[in-house]
């Protein structure tokens, strides 16, 4: 019995081998070695990818142009901001293409270590502030004025807020003055740290769906705003220098000019990739469109970039190095 089985097994083995070898003979396309196309003049372009979709949109478009128009070999590195900045010093990152403020990092890497330099504005404006879901703005129109927030504090009470209204803070990457704001504006609120952007988004999404009250820290541009149009609450208007002392802040956040940061050596080499980054400039609407392709239409960043570039050749022309 056993020997029969084994004969069968062996027969199977040899048969399948033969079959496989036959397949070898007849086919399928063979794998050809590729000659590594040495990109002339451009070389490798290391672009950091910070973890939010708007950034990804900038980077995808830049990478697409660098690859197709300039023939660069683009290497994308998925990194949080702090680590990306560190990468300037080690020569592993050439460019960060959307930077929200980060004066501390600028001080450390541009002023002190001199490993990074600014490459100008992206043209995108960053707005940080407190937001409520649209249904609340409709239901309580005066809620968008901070002076009325205390009246509504009871609506925002949760198990986490210790009897006060809950102000939901988000991604720890963003600078927040909210604890100071609550104190200095004498608001009856407690800051609760959601801890991550996805948690924050989910909280807002659910609040809108179920018509539940939420007041939270958010920012624009952000792809989620095209899903749910959060409404900003107006804090006392920002004036130059009103946020100088973090302890005493009692005004809204400034409008950020989102800029590009590149490594010193990348800038000094002044290659085509650097010039592209330096010239890059578009609008909130442009970025939101690409971000929308990625986040809601489930395109890959490459596809999204390609689609946008095809439709906006004129803008792209203006970014290309003048030679």
């Amino acid at each position: 019995m056993r020997s029969v089985v084994n004969k069968r097994v062996l027969a199977g083995v040899s048969l399948s081998t033969v079959a496989a070898l036959t397949l070898t003979a007849c086919g399928g396309s063979k794998i050809e070695s590729t000659d590594v196309a040495e990109a002339d003049g451009c070389g490798t372009f290391n672009i950091a990818i910070n973890p939010w979709v708007g950034y990804e949109a900038n980077a995808a478009v830049l990478a697409h142009v660098a690859e197709t128009e300039l023939g660069c070999k683009v290497v994308k590195k998925d990194l949080k901001e702090e680590i990306a900045w560190q990468g300037f010093g080690t020569g592993q990152v050439d460019a960060i293409v959307e930077n929200w403020g980060h004066d501390d990092l600028k001080q450390k890497y541009i002023e002190d270590q001199k490993t990074a330099v600014s490459a100008g504005s992206t043209g995108v404006e960053g707005i940080i502030g407190w937001y409520v879901p649209p249904w609340m703005a409709e239901e309580y129109p005066d809620i968008t004025d901070w002076n009325n927030l205390n009246e509504y504090a009871h609506l925002f009470e949760t198990t986490e807020s210790g009897g006060k209204g809950q102000l939901l803070d988000g991604d720890p990457s963003f600078v927040t003055n909210d604890e100071a704001l609550v104190k200095n504006l004498e608001l009856d609120y407690q800051v609760v740290y959601a801890g991550s952007e996805p948690a924050l988004i989910q909280a807002f999404r659910q609040a809108e769906e179920k018509k539940e009250p939420v007041l939270g820290y958010f920012y624009d541009p952000q792809w989620f705003l095209s899903e749910v149009e959060l409404v900003k609450v107006n804090l006392p208007e920002y004036q130059e220098g009103c946020d100088a002392d973090p302890e005493q802040v009692a005004c809204d956040y400034p409008v950020y000019d989102l800029d590009k940061i590149v490594s010193k050596s990348f800038a000094d080499a002044n290659g085509p990739a650097y010039q592209l980054v330096d010239n890059f400039n578009w609008t909130n609407a442009d970025q939101n469109l690409v971000a929308r392709y990625i986040a809601q239409d489930n395109m890959s960043p490459e596809e999204a970039a390609e689609k946008w570039v095809e439709a906006n050749q004129d803008k792209v022309e203006a970014w290309l190095p003048q030679s």
Binding site: K80, E81, E82, W85, D104, L105, K108, D171, P172, S173, V175, Y193, G195, S196
Partner: peptide, 11 residues
């Protein structure tokens, strides 16, 4: 937990 995440996110 939040302090650790924040420390990772902000230099």
């Amino acid at each position: 937990g939040y302090e650790v995440v924040a420390g990772f996110s902000q230099g």
